[in-house]
């Protein structure tokens, strides 16, 4: 358990590094090179109705027609200084609130670990 957590931590860190690098080297990220940035991927997975579909419940970014079941996702860095906590909320919201309506994306394998990492990166920009 601790091991995986560490690994996850590491991978999020390296992801962050990659994002940083991408942002530095290819800002604004161009879609022309085929590989969009991790943040963009995260945004796409978040908005995709068959994937995260976070907009069903949360206002977030420039997403249109959001639901209002969950709180609007804004100022995420300030509210989640601990990135692991943000990831944990997305991985399985029922740990904090057993009756949560929010989908346990990781626990029930609705999204892959990689997709969740991507979403975390995107949500952290909000």
């Amino acid at each position: 358990m601790r091991h995986t957590a560490k690994k996850l931590f590491k991978s999020t860190f390296s992801l962050a590094a990659v994002v940083g690098a991408l942002l530095l080297t290819s800002f604004p990220a161009s879609a022309a090179d085929g590989a969009s940035s991790v943040v963009e991927k995260g945004k796409a997975v978040s908005f995709d109705r068959k994937k995260g579909n976070c907009l069903a419940c949360h206002g977030m970014g420039d997403g249109t027609l959001p639901g209002n079941i969950g709180p609007p996702l804004t100022a995420m860095k300030a509210r989640f200084p601990d990135r692991a906590k943000l990831r944990a909320q997305i991985w399985d919201a029922t740990t904090l609130n057993p009756n949560s309506i929010m989908i346990p994306f990781g626990r029930n394998r609705v999204l892959s670990e990689e997709e969740i990492d991507q979403i975390v990166e995107y949500v952290y920009t909000l």
Binding site: L55, A56, L65, G67, N68, I69, N99, I101
Partner: peptide
Amino acid sequence: YYSGNKIR
């Protein structure tokens, strides 16, 4: 619990 709320 969420009747009256919007889902999308």
